[in-house]
Amino acid sequence: MIPVVEAASKMSLKCRLFSEFARQQLFRSSPACGLHISATYYAESKAVAEDEEFRTLELGGRKIQRRAQRIQREMPTLPPRYKRQATDQDWGNVWPAPRSFHPATVPLAVRQGYPAKGQAPPDKWGNAELMKIPNFLHLTPPVIERQCEALKKFCTPWPAGLENTEKQEKHFPVTMTKSSYLHSSPSIRDPKSRIVTLKVHLRSLDLDTHARDKLLRLVGDRYDPATDCLTLVADRCPLSQQNRDYCHYLLTVLYNEALKTEPWEHEKEVTDNERYVWQGSPSEAALKVIAAAKGEPVPEADVEKYRDAVAELHNEGEDETTLAKYREAVMKIAGIA
């Protein structure tokens, strides 16, 4: 092998100018002596590069070679699902849970959006507006019915004897209220859910006049005279259970305090009353004097009328109505009218 290479390097110029074509022919014609010829070729080309070929200076930047335009392959896509759906399919299985709108699944020709000039409103394909809005495709009437059926086995019948509000109030006079809050956040905690409200009608508590008066003084504006309802709101503890217990405690304490009569409560004078009480008043004494003078008892209806008129006059103040009522009641008692 070595002598062959040496011989090749010593080849004449004529041999070196072997045309490309001839060399190719040589390659083709004698595949059996490939090694021999390739060695010749390398040596020859090296010599040519050294002697004659110069690198050309390219001015004006490299010429941009036009590349053949890339052919976009079509992505194989399935036909929209609604075309494969039977008309009597079970929609609850197609759309079982809340999900953004998908035009290929929903077999409805819905459109949404403000139409551009001279165009129809945007259709469902590629319509982001339809994907934004919440939909109720998972809560169709048959699905709701099915869910209600499934939930029925967890329900118990309404307790007998609690049919109307009166009965409920009689058996369960105290109402406790608390709120739970659901946010779109990973936390289920809300500080507002600790607040507990207790409501009870005063008529369902066993109170006498003194106890009722005392309770009202204790609770202040937590009592609503229009509905006869006492409302206790507890929010001072961090947990709703603690607040609930505190509400119960408050109600118990209030009730027991109201029933108590402290020694100093007897010091209350007639003038300390917040409202005028006719019983035991000078007015009642005067009526008795009149009755004694007349020699016959005053009719019960007239006494009641007079009592109400006097109380109203004191409690609501003097105006034309109360004065007229009082005048009428007095004249009736005196037997003038």
Binding site: S100, G126, A128, M131, P134, L182, S184, S185
Partner: peptide, 19 residues
């Protein structure tokens, strides 16, 4: 993406929609 990224949150679930 040829639309905006739509983010809808329900409870602790995040649903991301888009075209």
């Amino acid at each position: 993406f040829v639309s905006e990224v739509i983010i809808k949150r329900q409870h602790n679930m995040i649903r991301i929609a888009g075209i």
